[in-house]
Design a protein around this nucleic acid. Structure first.
Lengths: 229, 229
DNA sequence: CGACGATTTGAATAGGATCAATGGGAGTGG
DNA sequence: CCACTCCCATTGATCCTATTCAAATCGTCG
């Protein structure tokens, strides 16, 4: 494992405030592994062996029931996932698979639970992380229950643009298929939604999306800090 | 505040493992308040002053956006809510209102955060509680995204029956209106769903629901421990 | 150039929501 | 005790959103 990776992990809110010793202990038990695209990392229903952290690449959290499937969230570096299952030492409620090739840091659950009991800074950080994730999923739920797919897309465009500096031009990092599941809709519907947004100040060609009339888009999206963060 | 109430709170997982002294400190800062039915307790967007705990009655967590509203969860005694907002000291993402008349224990957020930093047992308990809530909402999300309303109702009936001993007979504690929002559907749709379940081993009259053919109901519901808990 | 996957477009369908009207019980007042 | 009223629940009809299935188009990479 590269020194720069370790430093990156150390700088995460989750690990920043623990003692050097405990951090070293965790890291020496940890594995950094590369996975190709579309690899299943964990399966819902299994017991957690490791806390996972996306160091590079993109991971999709999804869930199945009968023959249906839904994307719950899409995770980019540097973020933990399935922390709640590790903490509770209970089965995963969601599956995870890579979208891109990805590097995943895996820390044995036991080590996490052990250090958690002995390092107050780490315990605090875990609480923050859990609270953050909890609130994240509440936002997802609200987005999906309260908005139509056009509205979700409109808000996603605004949020994405904002996080890229507000230049009014976005280049998709992935397939539209991926985006559509991130937004909780089918690819066909994403196409249609994007077409509809043509009337609301958005132009799209290929993987590029341009905001030509931000006012109009905002009128359509009606973004809210209580959903979009 | 009655001694028996205090003991009940003390016996909650969240408070069971903290020191006596810290518990007393919390309790002396706490208020136990009665609220009539349909009273708004907290509004999304506001900052948390208190951690709330439903001691008696029922509370609905819901959220609005524009002119739409959705129920996120329904809370029964004895359970905390809005813990994540208190921990993060950030605005509520959901509103809460009573359904019944309810008694709510309110503990000042600052006291929670203060004791959290000083009592390891309490910190552990908060982590468990957060993880539990997190997983709870993942289940809600899965239930709503992966199932039709008939399936949701069928599973709710099975789960309810199980939690009442499996006698095959359920009496609703509230109106059907309340149940319908708990299940994320309109009252009209609940009626229709219940009618449809007539073909799958369920009979309903008034507030009573009877499972006459559990096999058939299970075939329709296809319950999963990864959703229904 | 050809082939394959991704995207778009179109038509049909399903699942829910909404609107409107009717039925049914519980509580109230005569 | 009975009629009245009000609210909840049911039923029917219609609308809307999103999914599904099918076909056409686009783009990219050998």
């Amino acid at each position: 494992m590269r020194r720069s990776d370790i430093e990156q992990v150390r700088s995460l809110p989750l690990f920043r405030e623990m003692t050097k010793t405990h951090f070293s202990t965790l890291m020496s038990a940890a594995l950094l592994q590369k996975f190709p695209a579309r690899t299943v990392l964990i399966r819902e229903g299994e017991l957690p062996d490791f806390l996972h952290i996306v160091v590079e690449g993109t991971v999709e959290l999804y869930s199945r029931w009968e023959d249906r499937e839904t994307t719950i969230d899409i995770i980019r570096p540097v973020t933990t996932f399935i922390l709640a299952a590790v903490i509770q030492d209970d089965v995963y409620l969601k599956s995870a698979r890579t979208i891109d090739a990805a590097r995943i840091l895996m820390i044995p659950s036991e080590a996490i639970r052990d250090i958690f009991g002995r390092d107050a800074g780490f315990a605090r950080a875990i609480v923050s992380e859990l609270a953050l994730r909890y609130r994240g999923i509440v936002r997802v739920l609200k987005d999906r229950k309260l908005r139509t797919s056009v509205e979700r897309l409109a808000n996603w465009i605004l949020a994405m643009d904002r996080s890229e500096g507000g230049g009014g031009r976005i280049v998709l990092a992935h397939d539209k298929r991926t985006l559509s599941s991130r937004l909780g809709m089918t690819p066909e519907n994403l196409s249609r939604s994007l077409a509809i947004l043509g009337d609301h100040g958005v132009e799209g060609t290929g993987r590029e999306i341009v905001i030509v009339d931000r006012e109009a888009l905002q009128r359509c999206a009606k973004p809210s800090p209580l959903i979009d963060g």
